[in-house]
Simulated scan of single mutants.
Amino acid sequence: MVESIVAIVCLLVILPGMLLWYLDRRRKSDADPSSPGGPPLGDLSRHAARMEQRIEALEKLLDHEAPGWRKRDVE
């Protein structure tokens, strides 16, 4: 009797839970194999490109407003 209850619980609760956990892990690893659970590399590269454009714009503004700012940074 006890063995049949354990078998039913395993088939109806534990086995589907393990299957769902496995499928979720596989889905996450398929999204971005280099960093599981993190943002995709395409998003990171777009953010980096936008940041680079902003830095270039700020450097142009600083070159115009304070021409010697690069020399002060080295000293």
Score class of each variant (00 low, 15 high):
Met1Pro: 12
Val2Phe: 12
Val2Lys: 12
Glu3Trp: 08
Glu3Ser: 14
Glu3Ile: 13
Glu3Gln: 15
Glu3Asp: 11
Ile5Gln: 04
Ile5Asp: 02
Ala7Val: 04
Ala7Trp: 07
Ala7Thr: 12
Ile8Met: 11
Ile8Phe: 13
Ile8Trp: 12
Val9Trp: 02
Cys10Thr: 13
Leu11Trp: 10
Leu12Tyr: 10
Ile14Met: 04
Ile14Arg: 04
Leu15Gln: 02
Leu15Trp: 04
Leu15Asp: 01
Pro16Cys: 01
Pro16Ile: 00
Gly17Asp: 00
Met18Gly: 15
Met18Asp: 13
Leu19Gly: 09
Leu19His: 08
Leu20His: 07
Leu20Glu: 09
Tyr22Ala: 11
Tyr22Val: 12
Tyr22Phe: 10
Leu23Cys: 09
Leu23Ser: 03
Leu23Trp: 08
Asp24Glu: 05
Asp24Gly: 00
Asp24Phe: 01
Asp24His: 01
Arg25Ile: 04
Arg25Asn: 11
Arg25Leu: 11
Arg26Pro: 02
Arg26Gly: 03
Arg26His: 13
Arg26Thr: 15
Arg26Lys: 13
Arg27Asn: 06
Arg27Gln: 06
Lys28Arg: 04
Lys28Gln: 00
Lys28His: 02
Ser29His: 12
Asp30Cys: 11
Ala31Ile: 14
Ala31Gly: 03
Ala31Leu: 14
Pro33Asp: 10
Ser35Gln: 08
Pro36Gln: 09
Gly37Leu: 03
Gly37Asn: 04
Gly37Cys: 03
Gly37His: 04
Gly37Trp: 01
Gly37Met: 02
Gly38Thr: 06
Gly38Lys: 11
Pro39Gly: 07
Pro39Trp: 06
Pro40Phe: 02
Pro40Glu: 06
Leu41Gln: 11
Gly42Trp: 02
Asp43Gly: 05
Asp43Cys: 06
Asp43Ser: 07
Asp43Lys: 10
Leu44Lys: 14
Leu44Trp: 08
Leu44Met: 15
Leu44Cys: 13
Ser45Tyr: 06
Ser45Asp: 06
Ser45Gly: 00
Arg46Gln: 12
His47Gln: 15
His47Glu: 15
His47Cys: 14
Met51Glu: 12
Glu52Tyr: 01
Gln53Gly: 13
Arg54Trp: 09
Arg54Tyr: 06
Arg54Asn: 09
Ile55Gln: 00
Glu56Tyr: 03
Ala57Met: 10
Leu58Pro: 00
Leu58Val: 05
Leu58Tyr: 05
Glu59Pro: 00
Lys60Gln: 11
Lys60Trp: 08
Lys60His: 09
Leu61Met: 13
Leu61Cys: 08
Leu61Arg: 13
Leu62Glu: 03
Asp63Trp: 02
Asp63Ile: 03
Asp63Ala: 02
Asp63Asn: 13
His64Cys: 08
His64Thr: 15
Glu65His: 10
Ala66Arg: 05
Ala66Thr: 08
Ala66Ser: 05
Ala66Tyr: 11
Ala66Gln: 03
Pro67Tyr: 14
Gly68Arg: 15
Arg70Tyr: 07
Lys71Glu: 15
Lys71His: 15
Lys71Ile: 14
Arg72Val: 03
Arg72Glu: 05
Asp73Ile: 06
Asp73Gln: 07
Asp73Gly: 02
Val74Leu: 14
Val74Phe: 14
Val74Ile: 15
Glu75Trp: 04
